[in-house]
């Protein structure tokens, strides 16, 4: 495929057509923070930490770089007061769930996020979906999935599959940005107390 030339943080960067802005930045050695991104998985666009500012046709807007395709002559900024403010806010929201996550603590330092900005929220899961998507897309086992929606959304292992498959795999654990606490916990819970098949 032909290359597309765009500008990231003042640098001319070439990227293959169809690549994302995040891909292009990474290839050029420009670091954009991410939580839910994984190079072997389809773009998800859930954590929004990778927001960058785009300038095209005189308009500025924020987009998630992990899901935004490169376009010719795109002008991208990966840091600005606004971007930093948004990232700080996002990290603060996630710290309400997982205040002791190493990855989140690093990000908090970088963006000056206050771990007590918001009231603690139940569960350490930050819904990055890495475990769910890895299990479905790479392992094709579907042993863990999401249930419910909005603020009640959770990850949940299916005991029937998990009891068969998970003991020998556990490849999703190290992907978890909350230090695999949540996946491990939910798996153990599902195996120890399997719900009746008809309920969640």
């Amino acid at each position: 495929m032909s290359d597309v030339t765009l500008q990231i943080d003042g640098k001319q960067v070439a990227a293959p057509a169809g690549a994302t802005v995040l891909d292009a930045a990474s290839a050029a050695g420009i670091v954009i923070p991410t939580l839910c991104h994984h190079e072997r998985l389809a773009p998800f666009g859930g954590c929004r930490l990778c927001v960058v500012e785009l300038e095209s046709r005189g308009q500025h807007r924020l987009v998630a770089s992990c899901a935004h395709p490169v376009e010719p002559d795109l002008v991208v900024r990966t840091r600005s007061d606004k971007i930093d403010r948004i990232r700080k806010s996002l990290v603060e929201l996630l710290l309400a769930h997982a205040p002791d996550s190493t990855r989140l603590k690093e990000l908090a330092r970088e963006y000056g996020a206050d771990r007590d900005r918001f009231e603690p929220a139940e569960g350490f899961c930050v819904h990055c979906g890495l475990c769910v998507r890895y299990c479905a897309e790479i392992k094709k086992l579907h042993a863990v999935g999401f249930i419910d929606r909005g603020i009640r959304k959770e990850i949940s292992f299916l005991p029937e599959i998990a009891s068969r498959e998970c003991a020998g795999c556990k490849e999703c654990f190290p992907l978890c940005p909350t230090s695999y606490l949540q996946a491990a916990y939910v798996l153990v819970e599902a195996l120890a107390f399997p719900p009746p098949p008809s309920t969640r």
């Binding site: 998800f44 929004r48 929220a121 929606r149 909005g150 603020i151």
Partner: peptide, 21 residues
């Protein structure tokens, strides 16, 4: 909206949770 958010992205799911509180 906290009830109706799909829960996929952080600013909506977590932001609305805190706004609601």
């Amino acid at each position: 909206l906290t009830e109706e958010s799909c829960g996929k992205c952080v600013p909506c799911r977590e932001g609305l949770r805190q706004m609601h509180r």
